[in-house]
Nucleic acid binder design. Sequence first.
DNA 1: CGAAGGATTTTCT
DNA 2: GAAAATCCTTCGT
Length: 197
Amino acid sequence: MFDRQLLARPSVEVAPLLLGATIRHGAVAVELTEVEAYLGGDDPGSHAFRGRTARNAVMFGEPGRLYTYFSYGMHVCANVVCGPEGTASGVLLRAGRVIEGIDIARSRRNTSKSDRDLARGPARLAVALGITLEHGGTDLAEGDIRLDLGADSTGHAVGPRTGVSGAGGTEAYPWRFWVPNDPTVSPYRAHVPKRRA
DNA sequence: CGAAGGATTTTCT
DNA sequence: GAAAATCCTTCGT
């Protein structure tokens, strides 16, 4: 099912509810096992920390839509927009388990590795689902890409966000949520500052 | 198994 | 001009 009223709540409340939900694009479906919440304003880890820009405009729009962004010059990551319209809030889809269309997901990923690695990481998940920047702003209620909330969430673990630089990646913002003991959850990695050539 | 470095381009200051 | 919500390969233990 899809519940836009539920998604209109702040992303920190919505994130744990997305665990166990499935996101589908055509013949490929992924059950989410790991997510992270991002806010606007007071969240130094968020793209919307310094207000509205061309890139993050979708985060301020209607909840239940897809926010995509280009990361590290080579990757695409997908978020679900949350919060009431006018506020910046979103949930990054960090990892999941491919439950349908494994052959298609594998060919997109161009890898012969184990099934559990197909969507183990935000950029990997986007590739496995075939999500590109062109899908930014898509409504997840209907159309090619759909979000289907899980029937029941049996419990989740909480911790600091992965790969976020500065204060936003510390214990002060424990906004990463995952399914305990699930092999498809990505390994935790703290942010590593890159030195220039 | 963990740590480290390179790839590559958009975005905002 | 520098940093970035990452991934993959390689090397060391």
